[in-house]
Amino acid sequence: MTKLPNPKEFKSFKADLSKSIKFDEVEPNYNLENIYQAMKKNSTPHGRVSQLIDKEILQSFDNTQKVLKNCILFDKMNDSVAIAIKDDEEIKAIAIHRAKDKDNNIIKWKTLGSKSYIPHSIRDNSKIVFVLVGMKEYLLMELMQLDYIVPQSDSIVKSLGSNKQWLEEIKPKIKDKLIVYINENDRSSQELVNPLKEEHSNILSIDINSLYLFHIIGNGGREQELPKGYDFIDFCNSFKDIDSIQQSIKEYIEMELKQ
């Protein structure tokens, strides 16, 4: 009779294998630059970008057209908006919103290129750097012109200690800065502050529920229970007035730092 492998041993083997093999570094069988140039030629249908960020918010920024021109692509194959992630002019990844997998199932985001690359913008004279997770958040940070670090997924945050880009390029830039992490209304998102604290000592974690309540107290609105997964994009889309949103964030940070 054949003896089945111990599941616990297999789990340990799988974890060790993932540490030794950097799957994201395997050369893809496509040319990312060619895909970018092809998508860049496609015109984005009217109203598609506002499926990511509310139209009123997009209209409230002076730099919207510049950011969209730099970041937004359209993937005709998936009939979907895509976001280009760059390091200066080098294309690091293309994140396609609502793409099909090999079985024709719709997935929320499909990434071509590096899944571990961390988009960031950190000026030398900045005092605060915001950390959010996700591609919509990346687009919003570009629009708001804030200093930011936006990992593409939760898994990247959990593995910062082994991320070469984080260790060599990003971490040295935030040495004397306050990191403000805004979580989602989800336990797994709230727990992401733990790996951040392992990497940086000066962390302020903002719970989205607390920020929501703080904002409606100062600006009016109806208090309600936020759905699971409610995030900073939902928060901005809910209130739309970007000036009052930015003021609430500023005042909330000041309040927390005084405590």
Rank of each mutant, 00 (worst) to 15 (best):
Q165W: 03
N194L: 15
Q37D: 04
S188N: 12
E56S: 13
S43V: 09
Y117N: 07
E184L: 08
S205L: 00
N105S: 07
P5M: 06
L132C: 07
K228I: 00
K14E: 10
I216Q: 06
L139Q: 03
E142R: 14
E184H: 09
K173H: 05
S153R: 13
G47A: 08
M255E: 14
S153L: 06
N219A: 09
I21W: 11
Y230D: 06
I53P: 04
Q51D: 09
I149R: 08
L178E: 02
L73C: 07
L112C: 02
G220W: 09
E254A: 10
S238Q: 14
Y117D: 06
K173N: 04
S80N: 01
L196F: 13
S205A: 13
K40G: 01
S244N: 15
E27V: 13
S126C: 12
Y148K: 04
I253M: 01
Y181K: 07
V129L: 04
S12I: 15
I21D: 06
V131R: 01
S50F: 08
T64W: 10
E199M: 09
D62T: 13
K41Q: 14
I83Y: 10
I118R: 10
V133E: 15
I179Y: 04
Y230F: 15
K100V: 02
F214R: 03
N63V: 11
D124N: 10
G220Y: 14
I253G: 03
T2P: 14
Y30S: 05
I83F: 11
S244Y: 10
L139R: 01
K102I: 12
R98I: 02
P227D: 05
R98V: 00
I233L: 02
E25S: 15
E191A: 14
S153E: 12
I253P: 07
K164T: 07
M1T: 06
L139H: 06
Q247S: 09
P119S: 01
K69Q: 15
R187M: 10
I21A: 04
I253R: 05
L132E: 11
S114T: 01
S162L: 04
I107R: 11
R48M: 11
S159T: 09
L143G: 11
K102M: 05
N194S: 13
W166S: 00
Q190H: 03
I122Q: 02
L204S: 06
D79L: 12
E169P: 01
I91G: 06
I53F: 05
I203E: 13
E184F: 12
F239K: 12
K86D: 09
V129P: 01
E25N: 12
I174G: 00
K102N: 13
K240S: 02
S80V: 03
P28H: 01
V81A: 08
I96A: 13
I149E: 09
G161P: 04
L112S: 08
N237W: 11
N194Q: 14
S60R: 07
